[in-house]
C-alpha cells in the first residue's frame, strides 16, 4: 500500500511546473504560432482563389482569341473568293475579246479576199475581153474596131460574168 501513496512534494512541484508551462505557452508561445497558422491558411486560400481567377481569365482570353482567329480566317476566305471571282470574270472578258478580235480579223480577211477577188475578176474581165477580141479576130478574120468590139464583148462577158457570179 505504501507504494501507491504519492509524495506530497511531488504533487506540489508537478502542479507548479504545469502552471508555469501553461502560462508560458498561453501568453508567449501560442499567440504567434496561432497567428502564423491562420496567416498561412489565409494566404493559401488567397493564392488558390487568385489562381482560380487567373485560370478563368485565361480561358476567357483563349475563347476570345479563338473567335478572332475564326473571324480572320473567314475574312481571308471571303477575300480569296472575291479575288477568284474577279479573276474569272476578267478571264471571261479577255477570252471574249480575243474571240471578238479573231472574228473581226477573219471578217476583215474575208472582205479583203473578196476585194482581191473582185479586182482579180475585173482584171480578168479586161484580159478576157482583149483575149476574146484577138480570138474573134483570128476566127472572124476581120478586125473590128476596137471600141465596137469592146462594147459587144463586155456585154457578153457581163452575161457570162453574171451567170458565173450566180
Amino acid at each position: 500500500m505504501e507504494a501507491i501513496i504519492p509524495y506530497t512534494s511531488e504533487l506540489l512541484v508537478s502542479l507548479v511546473s504545469f502552471g508555469v508551462l501553461f502560462i508560458a505557452l498561453w501568453k508567449f508561445a501560442l499567440p504567434p504560432i496561432m497567428k502564423m497558422l491562420d496567416e498561412r491558411a489565409e494566404k493559401i486560400k488567397d493564392s488558390l482563389e487568385k489562381a482560380e481567377e487567373t485560370r478563368v481569365e485565361a480561358e476567357r482570353l483563349l475563347d476570345e482569341y479563338k473567335e478572332q482567329l475564326a473571324e480572320a480566317r473567314q475574312e481571308s476566305n471571303r477575300v480569296i473568293e472575291q479575288g477568284r471571282k474577279i479573276a474569272e470574270t476578267m478571264k471571261d472578258e479577255i477570252v471574249a475579246k480575243a474571240n471578238e478580235e479573231r472574228e473581226s480579223m477573219l471578217a476583215r480577211a474575208r472582205e479583203e479576199i473578196q476585194g482581191e477577188k473582185r479586182t482579180a475578176m475585173a482584171e480578168l474581165q479586161a484580159q478576157v475581153a482583149d483575149l476574146s477580141v484577138a480570138v474573134a479576130n483570128r476566127l472572124i478574120g476581120t478586125t473590128l474596131s476596137a471600141n465596137d468590139h469592146k462594147s459587144l464583148i463586155e456585154k457578153f462577158v457581163a452575161e457570162v460574168g453574171s451567170l458565173d457570179a450566180e
Binding site: 512541484v13 511546473s17 508567449f28 508561445a29
Partner: peptide, 16 residues
C-alpha cells in the same frame, strides 16, 4: 520533471 518542463518552455519560446 523540472528539466523537461524547462526544455518545453525554451523550445516553444524559441520556436515562436
Amino acid at each position: 520533471l523540472i528539466i523537461a518542463i524547462a526544455l518545453t518552455i525554451v523550445f516553444f519560446v524559441v520556436a515562436s
